[in-house]
Design a protein around this nucleic acid. Structure first.
Lengths: 232, 232
DNA sequence: CGACGCATTGACAGGGCTCAATTTAAGTGG
DNA sequence: CCACTTAAATTGAGCCCTGTCAATGCGTCG
């Protein structure tokens, strides 16, 4: 049964279901709505009333925060086993960001009522949610520090390494980032422009640190990037 | 009894104690350690093992994240009724930032064990903590977007307005920010330098939008700043 | 094959950082 | 109360990083 694999995946990458027995996890998943989306579709929109929280089963989301004038920042990438839109459980508010799929993506959505009931039925869930949220706050604080204090080149190297750790797949010629990642997206993720990203990746490619095709990046020499991201 | 006023204050500015009766709130506060610090002292240090969470009773903290080479970013200001270092309840980790007092500050600290017990005794506490954390994540996401997409002048105007809302005191000549706020701190808060902040505040002062002395800022014309922080 | 979107590259300019030199203001101690 | 110290704030000059704009190349897909 495919659900099994999903649960195991979830256990691997997230702690939302940790401390929950497999049997209970199946119950929890079954009490939500299964959603299957194609690539580039919107799971929820910034500004819409927040009525559901989601757990990604497989595939990937990018969480985008929109600014006036069409500018945007990518807050994070959300992989299998990770929760998002937790806010909808507590506030009668709008989603503060937009979630767009990258590739075919499956998720489970729970509305507010169901989620509250679930947390009552399975108390560890509430704790896990808090832990997830703290982890995300922690990561965002680090990125905030980086963007405040570091130059673009350093930020891009850190970003690549971070994405690599989250979604890297080891291969002969280096570590592949296993979803399409354009220069524009890297720029939105690091707070810079396509042009600057393009220039920097080009120089790195000449040095042999990375290889890249269209919307695809292979990190050949992570060590150089690490050295680069930490000033001497 | 002064505790009373403190609880009311807390109710006003935070939701950590919301849904908790006054009697229970007193119990909760009494089961922590009261701490009283002078100005400029450190409540906890980035990198130290995190063993306590804190609630500010009165006074103010600034939460600083340190980078290599002495650079730093100010993550937020923490006023009466607000929690910080929630992380210590869940992780055996280090504090991810440093908390320094601004002016005489009183706080209550609970160690991990006590806090877990408190949450068992008063279930709404866990929910409140999650809500607080979500709110902070929300605010930081907004600031992250700002720093990614806006120019320095815009960021400073937003920062001033934000701090004003949190800690402004209305007076005849404008809204006073009721704690010492240096140019350096504004710079660390907005990801820029003292020099740039100084220049920008000077021009604003010439326009009559603000008044400033050493480490003190009075916003005379918030409306102009608002218009300024939102592009046409 | 044509069209569209992604990526690259060059030229250019300007916002904001760096550095250095003062000025101003707040303590501090005699 | 005044000289002295110390830290914050201001201001100018210079330049570099990086954003902006424009043109072109290239890969993909209908």
């Amino acid at each position: 049964m495919i659900l099994n694999a999903i649960i195991e995946d979830s256990f691997g990458q997230s702690d939302f279901l940790s401390g929950i027995s497999e049997l209970h996890a199946i119950d929890i998943l079954n009490r939500g709505n299964r959603i299957r989306l194609k690539s580039g579709q919107i799971l929820f929109h910034q500004g819409d009333p927040a009525h559901k929280s989601f757990l990604v089963l497989n595939g990937r989301l990018k969480l985008i925060k929109l600014h006036e004038e069409g500018k945007e920042a990518i807050l994070r990438y959300i992989g299998p086993g990770e929760m998002t839109a937790i806010i909808s459980v507590f506030k009668e508010k709008e989603y503060p960001a937009t979630a767009e799929t990258i590739g075919v993506t499956e998720a489970v959505g729970w509305d507010k009522q169901t989620m509250v009931q679930l947390m009552l039925d399975y108390p560890p869930l509430a704790v896990n949610m808090l832990r997830c949220t703290i982890n995300r706050l922690d990561e965002l604080q680090s990125r905030y520090l980086e963007i405040c204090t570091e130059q673009v080149e350093q930020r891009i190297s850190r970003a690549l390494l971070r994405i690599m750790k989250q979604s890297g797949r080891r291969a002969e010629d280096g570590i592949h980032i296993d979803f399409p990642l354009s220069r524009q997206e890297l720029a939105d993720y690091t707070g810079t422009t396509v042009y600057t990203v393009s220039r920097i990746l080009s120089t790195w490619e000449k040095k042999g640190w990375i290889k890249s095709k269209r919307e695809q990046i292979i990190v050949c020499d992570p060590h150089s990037l690490v050295l680069f991201s930490e000033p001497p």
